[in-house]
Design a protein around this nucleic acid. Sequence first.
DNA 1: TCGACGATTGCC
DNA 2: GCAATCGTCGAG
Length: 181
Amino acid sequence: MKRIQKTFFAQDVLEVAPQLLGQTLCRRFESGEEVRLALTETEAYGGEEDLASHARFGKTKRNQVMYGKAGSLYVYLIYGIYWMLNVVTGNVGEPQAVLIRGARTQSGKVLDGPGKIGQFLQLSKDFYGQNCLESKKLWFEKGKTIKPEDIVCSPRIGVAYAGQWAHKPWRFDLVNNSSSK
DNA sequence: TCGACGATTGCC
DNA sequence: GCAATCGTCGAG
């Protein structure tokens, strides 16, 4: 299998987020077991001007990795319970990231929601700042290419505080996967 | 330092 | 409808 390279993640987040649909997310556990997920739902977070983004207050201890190299993993704890998985995109200095919201296992199990993804992948703070171009624990491989007409855009989830930015259609779903929303 | 709260989920 | 649970953030 072929690991997805830096040129892909270095694109603008609005290019990367939809193009990640259908690609393969790979995880190697401590036991040596490897699992692969087909991505079905993503969300794009733009720069500091995006009031829905963690970068809206500028660079902070938590979000600094978003300002770094494309392909870096931005993993953070939400509600003290769930670990969220993001991949940094764009150029260094531009805090962009894609949130992984949904995927399907090889056995067909549906992981619907970012918290469940993190649970399944057994994420932790150790993943913060890892680079998916090099990591032995988490990376992306070339999967299926999704046709534009099979992608559905809608507003992002859980960002009502973001004013007009909450309405941006920056959530991307597979069309045959969006019925449950 | 302090108080508030979140890119969520599941149970009441 | 709301509690769980804690690190981070801006304010004081």
